[in-house]
Design a binder for these strands. Structure first.
Length: 501
DNA sequence: GTTAATAACGTT
DNA sequence: AACGTTATTAAC
């Protein structure tokens, strides 16, 4: 069946499962799942009902390929089904209740993974998200900023390898985060009907401990202090405003305007993946097509859509690698890397033809907080040494790609680490080591690998380096990390591109 | 041939 | 002095 020919009716939430309100995921994935799955998905906990209906009502408000999504209360037992839908009512009768229908369709997706699967780490399936900026004036009802709740599921593979995976969060945890961590008032069933508008808050949960998936949660990627979230009941038109005092703790001062430089690239002009160069730890940023770039450690990328709406992208800068998460699903996970002295970069977005990114300088508070952190250099050097040995990572590779230093320098630092108090600018190198060490294993490897790929590409443009790169790329492997072999290259070269790194 | 350690030296 | 690079070398 063709997704384009079907409408999806989405219903969720009842008094037993008010927390259903909070789940987010890519709808396109969900549609795939719908297509490929049995028509009766059932889950124990979920009371979501999905219906697929042939032929969306044609209306000038709707593009033909749009999917109509509506929501409805479901007070039956907890289940999820995919059932053929009766004929939809005319659009005119729906516009009152579902007046946001067409807007969602631009990029929305529904995820309906089946939580009754054997795997006990399967994610709860109740999720809904909207990537598309929703025009507030058209849809005044949609007041909720996008909330993304995730958890990381750690898989313990052989050889002590631990893989951290982003997943949707369990409803209980989501509720707990909202109520306990963020101190939202208790969510009751009148507040269940929620629509998520935009990426403002993202929660990631990651674990330092294999046994515990819920050690810490943090807020990333928000650009504006969010103080309230409104839940709307579409059927009773009641509004519930939840204020969130603790979010005020995370103000982000808008940077001076002159520091904003945005780039705009056509899709055809760039390669897949987002590359950039992170070289100096400065809080200023300059971006441009194929231009030099410097990203501060706490810089932030902001995605700007055609309407000028901006929303922050999670950006993680670790060691010499900067990763920009252009979206939350793993597929569009993009990242950026460093080259030793190069400064070229390029951007792309997998979804839209044109996209703008802005780099936003960090706040002073954040930087100062980091600077105050003391590092036990001796211990760190020890740990780095053993990690390099463990994965058979040559000093030269690590030094160059993660630290942007020479092999000799790294060797010296590892063997004769100076105490933190005696370091000046050299602290930065140790910070990078620590950052790298703190990354999840997969990211660490991809940092190194991405840098290698980038280097390889650079060498197709720079002849003098060609031999070196070829050799290092061929020879270098992470002996104890099967992941590297499995992972596809995130940066692939587009032959028509001239955005070398 | 590859890697890590080290000496000698340049830059700020 | 602090911090880094390059060249060299010994060990594997």
């Amino acid at each position: 069946m063709n997704v384009d020919d079907y409408s999806v009716v989405y219903s969720q939430g009842n008094e037993n499962y008010p927390e259903n309100a909070i789940f987010i995921n890519e709808i396109s994935q969900g549609l795939d799942i719908i297509q490929n799955s049995d028509k009766s998905l059932k889950t124990k906990e979920s009371n979501i009902e999905f219906r697929i209906k042939e032929k969306v009502v044609q209306n000038e408000l709707f593009n033909t390929q749009d999917k109509l999504i509506t929501s409805a209360l479901n007070n039956t037992d907890t289940y999820a089904t995919l059932t053929p839908l009766q004929t939809l009512p005319p659009i005119s009768t729906m516009s009152e209740k579902f007046l946001y229908g067409s807007q969602w369709n631009e990029a929305c997706s529904i995820d309906v993974s089946n939580s009754s699967s054997d795997r006990n780490d399967v994610i709860d399936s109740r999720s809904l998200s909207f990537n598309t900026p929703i025009n507030q004036s058209h849809f005044p009802k949609l007041c909720i900023r996008n909330i993304t709740l995730q958890r990381r599921q750690n898989h313990n593979y052989a050889d002590n390898y631990m893989h951290s995976e982003k997943r949707k969060i369990f409803p209980e945890t989501a509720k707990s985060i909202l109520q306990d961590t963020l101190r939202f008032p208790v969510i009751n069933n009148n507040e269940v009907q929620n629509i998520v508008e935009k990426n403002i808050l993202e929660f990631t949960q990651c674990s330092k401990n294999k046994e515990d998936n819920y050690i810490n949660s943090q807020i990333v990627g928000h650009s504006n202090p969010i103080e309230e979230i409104k839940f709307i009941d579409d059927f009773s038109s009641t509004k519930t405003v939840l204020t969130c005092p603790s979010l005020k703790k995370y103000p982000v001062t808008p940077p001076p305007k002159e520091n904003h430089k945005s780039i705009s690239l056509k899709k055809s002009n760039v390669k897949l993946g987002t590359d950039c160069v992170f070289e100096k730890h400065v809080a200023s940023t300059s971006l441009g097509e194929g231009a030099n770039i410097e990203i501060g450690r706490k810089s932030q990328f902001t995605k700007i859509d055609e309407s000028g709406n901006s929303f922050p992208l999670p950006l993680q800068i670790t060691g010499s690698t900067a990763q920009v998460f252009s979206d939350f699903n793993e597929e569009s996970f993009t990242s950026s890397t460093i080259s030793n002295k190069g400064n070229k970069c390029s951007y792309s977005d997998l979804k839209s033809d044109t996209i703008s990114y802005q780099a936003v300088p960090s706040t002073k508070l954040q930087d100062e907080a980091e600077d105050r952190e003391e590092i036990n250099t001796k211990d760190l050097a020890q740990r780095i040494s053993s990690e390099l040995k463990r994965y058979s990572i040559p000093q030269a590779i690590f030094a160059q790609r993660v630290l942007c230093r020479s092999q000799g320098t790294l060797s010296d630092l590892l063997r004769n680490p100076k105490p933190w108090s005696k370091l000046k600018s050299g602290r930065e190198t140790f910070r990078r080591m620590l950052k790298w060490l703190q990354e999840p294993e997969m990211q660490r490897m991809s940092s190194l690998r991405l840098a290698a790929a980038q280097e390889q590409r650079a060498c197709t443009f720079v002849n003098s380096k060609q031999e070196f790169t070829r050799i290092s790329a061929d020879r270098f492997s992470f002996k104890n990390s099967f992941h590297v072999e499995c992972l596809p290259l995130m940066c692939t070269m587009n032959t028509t591109s001239n955005h070398e790194c």
